[in-house]
């Protein structure tokens, strides 16, 4: 069986398309690469959706935490504290438990007990809390002059937030937010490892790596493959966030430093 056949059979195995049975003997490197790569789909799914949804919630939480009103500030503070202060392991455990009880009372909530929704919700809350803390820090360090200038222009409320506060906050928070995105993608490996059950052997990259490590009794092949995939993924994230960072800072003179730096060599 050639490697292309393997990819055709198992490339989408993690979402239930292709061969039903996982390989059980004569494990090839190709199978390991294909299945673990197939599992990466789940890691990307969890990571991307949680990040996107979490971003908006995080901004709301950050603004809430910076609010003057106790009624808004306290809940935001507590939410951030609880989700940042406890291991994801424990959050998954309680979430699964809670979702099960919810399901028994109201059948409408039954998708929550499966990983595709339940784990996503937990990761969403988790990343929202971490990002909110980062954004809150950025909000605090917005230069006073920027806000005064906005006032001088007669901006207030929403337009001041949208045109001054929000972009500046993003710009200040972006490096730390990049780190948070990397951490979140790494955290997605915990979903099937300790949190939610895997149905019909559909799992994430770590699930398949674990499967191979268990079947071949050799951890030195599947886990480094998994590590390789994640290094690639991390590079992509860093690249994308770097692009976004350039966009956010496009008006700043610091970006113009580059041509200046190059000039001496050109003159010489």
């Amino acid at each position: 069986m050639s490697c292309w056949d393997t990819i055709a059979d198992y490339g989408l195995r993690s979402i239930g398309i292709g061969e039903r049975l996982l390989p059980t003997e004569n494990f090839t490197l190709c199978q390991q690469f294909t299945l673990i790569g197939s599992g990466m789909l789940w890691n990307i799914y969890f990571g991307v959706l949680a990040l996107l949804a979490g971003f908006f919630f995080a901004v709301a939480l950050a603004v809430g935490k910076a609010s003057q009103s106790r009624l808004i500030r306290k809940p935001a503070e507590w939410f951030i504290f609880v989700f940042r202060g406890s291991p994801l392991f424990i959050q998954f455990f309680f979430a699964y438990f809670l979702f099960l009880s919810l399901k028994q009372v109201i059948p409408f909530f039954s998708p929550l007990t499966s990983a595709w929704l339940g784990a996503l919700v937990v990761l969403f809350f988790n990343t929202a809390a971490y990002s909110a803390e980062i954004f809150h820090g950025a909000l605090q360090s917005i230069p006073k002059g920027d806000l005064e200038a906005a006032d001088a222009y007669g901006m207030s409320g929403w337009s001041r937030f949208r045109r001054i506060t929000f972009p500046t906050m993003l710009r200040l928070a972006w490096p730390a937010y990049t780190n948070e995105a990397i951490f979140l993608f790494h955290a997605t490996t915990l979903v099937f490892f300790s949190g939610f059950p895997a149905w019909r052997q559909k799992g994430d990259a770590l699930y398949y790596a674990n499967y191979f490590a268990d079947k071949t009794f050799n951890p030195f092949i599947p886990y480094p493959i998994l590590a390789g995939y994640f290094i690639l993924l991390t590079l992509c994230i860093v690249g994308l966030y770097g692009l976004a960072n350039r966009h956010l800072n496009r008006h700043l003179p610091s970006n113009a430093r580059r041509p200046i730096k190059l000039r001496p060599t050109l003159l010489r």
Partner: peptide
């Protein structure tokens, strides 16, 4: 090392 999830690292 930053690119690899700590859990995958610990496993081998």
């Amino acid at each position: 090392v930053r690119g690899v999830p700590d859990i995958a690292f610990f496993l081998f």
